[in-house]
């Protein structure tokens, strides 16, 4: 049986999410679906960042009762990944809010959510 590293699998999942996001943003016509694809893309990036802090056989980076001070630094997962992802999530929230607001305005202006019609300036 082949041993596959957990980190490798996470990277695979992350790149699948990223590629699905890119494909959705490029090839889907509905603006809301484009927004969903965008969030999928940023989720993929977040997943990759979190899994960078993976330590084989590691533990949660919270000092629990009974933990050993000398072993904890070696075993605990690295914290920079989740730390940066927290920032990334906040930025994702604000970007999604702005995009959703823009989509609402486009819908009010053109009466349609189809990107192809919006680009041609057709009213429905």
């Amino acid at each position: 049986m082949i041993e596959v590293s957990l980190q490798l699998l996470t990277f695979l999942a992350a790149s699948l999410l990223i590629i699905i996001g890119i494909a959705g943003m490029l090839f889907l016509d509905n603006l809301i679906k484009k927004l969903i694809s965008f969030t999928l893309l940023s989720d993929g990036v977040n997943l990759a960042l979190v899994s960078l802090g993976y330590v084989p056989g590691g533990i949660v980076p919270i000092l629990e009762p009974g933990a050993s001070i000398s072993d904890f630094p070696k075993e605990a997962a690295l914290i920079f990944g989740p730390g940066i992802v927290l920032t990334n999530i906040v930025i994702g929230v604000s970007t999604t809010a702005i995009l959703a607001a823009l989509i609402i305005m486009l819908y009010k202006r053109y009466g349609t959510l189809k990107a192809s019609k919006v680009l041609k300036g057709e009213m429905e």
Partner: peptide, 26 residues
């Protein structure tokens, strides 16, 4: 290419100091 090539760096410093401040390292 990044797999296993990440330096522990400042994360390890904070892990070492965890018992002197907040137990939640993050």
């Amino acid at each position: 290419q990044l797999e296993g090539n990440v330096a522990r760096g400042i994360s390890e410093e904070y892990n070492k100091l965890a018992y002197r401040m907040a137990p939640n390292n993050l």
